[in-house]
Design a protein around this nucleic acid. Structure first.
Lengths: 159, 159
DNA sequence: TATACTCGGACAGAACAGGTCCGAGTATCA
DNA sequence: TGATACTCGGACCTGTTCTGTCCGAGTATA
């Protein structure tokens, strides 16, 4: 799994605190990560429609939808792509004992097993929203944590 | 996910048909895949203890345990490694608003969410055994399919 | 004892994630 | 109204992992 997923999820959570656009550079400074590379992840989120970009002097990124309507799966798909991790190359139809196409109307048992597991994985991720994550942060670190982040993102003078 | 997982699973399934060791080259020919590269995957399976190698003239690979006691998860772990796909880099402890270590006694909510999903994925794979896959192949293609494979693996003269 | 066949690890090439850079575009402010 | 400074967007380069190949070590066979 791409490491950018972690960055993207953290950014989505902190973006819930601000209704105004936040520049990518500020998000990168908050997390002490590469701003140039984070920009690429945010572009992926924008292409997926999860966040929208505002250009110009006071531009940046902001969530497009309400946090409770953005699932973790949405973010993972935006970064890593929506395709399944396991790809069946139909090797049962190759070699000297190749199965005839007439016997391959359904996916082979191995692919079915892998896809069943991936479905369970996706279902679990789809059941968790960005709002859930923000609430969990509150439960863990107290409400002042995200409040401090909000203040820092929107208006701190200088560090 | 590594493409070698598909090869390894197919090999485990066909190995259930033969109690005698099968050379890697024959397994590769059966599936029409690279023998040199398949050898590497089989070595991973051997290191994990799922199959054992027999050297010498009539050597090859054979399953170590009964097919019903080898789960799909065992094979995936042997090929792709047992580590989790999502790795938390604890970026909450970095940057100007870094959370103090005292507030990080438990994993961050994002890591918890990802690991919950991975657990669901692993549970699904652990619930399926190589014996289940072999039975599914019988259900799909009829019992003669694996019987033919067994004959081809053990004793065909030349092709 | 010679042999032929097997596995095992060491050695290149390709694809992808990670990381960086500069140009296009827009709201701001004089 | 126009210059400016700040933003995003995509093109470019690098490092690591995955894919693929090769030859040598070891053993059952005849």
């Amino acid at each position: 799994m791409s490491g950018g997923v972690e960055w993207a999820l953290h950014c989505c959570v902190v973006l819930t605190t601000s209704s105004r656009p936040v520049p990518a550079a500020r998000l990168a400074e908050l997390h002490d990560i590469s701003g140039s590379y984070l920009a690429k992840q945010l572009q992926s989120l924008a292409r997926a429609g999860l966040i929208h970009s505002v250009q110009g002097k006071s531009g940046g990124y902001a969530l497009t939808r309400a946090p409770q309507s953005i699932s973790v799966l949405d973010v993972v798909h935006a970064i890593d792509g929506p395709g399944p991790a396991f790809v069946c190359t139909e090797i049962r139809q190759r070699g000297p004992l190749a199965a005839p196409p007439s016997a391959c109307t359904s996916a082979c048992p191995i692919a079915r097993a892998m896809w069943t597991a991936e479905t369970a994985w996706r279902d679990a991720l789809a059941a968790i929203t960005i709002a859930d994550l923000a609430r969990d942060v509150d439960d863990d670190s107290g409400p002042e944590a995200l409040t401090t982040v909000r203040a820092w993102l929107t208006g701190e003078p200088a560090g």
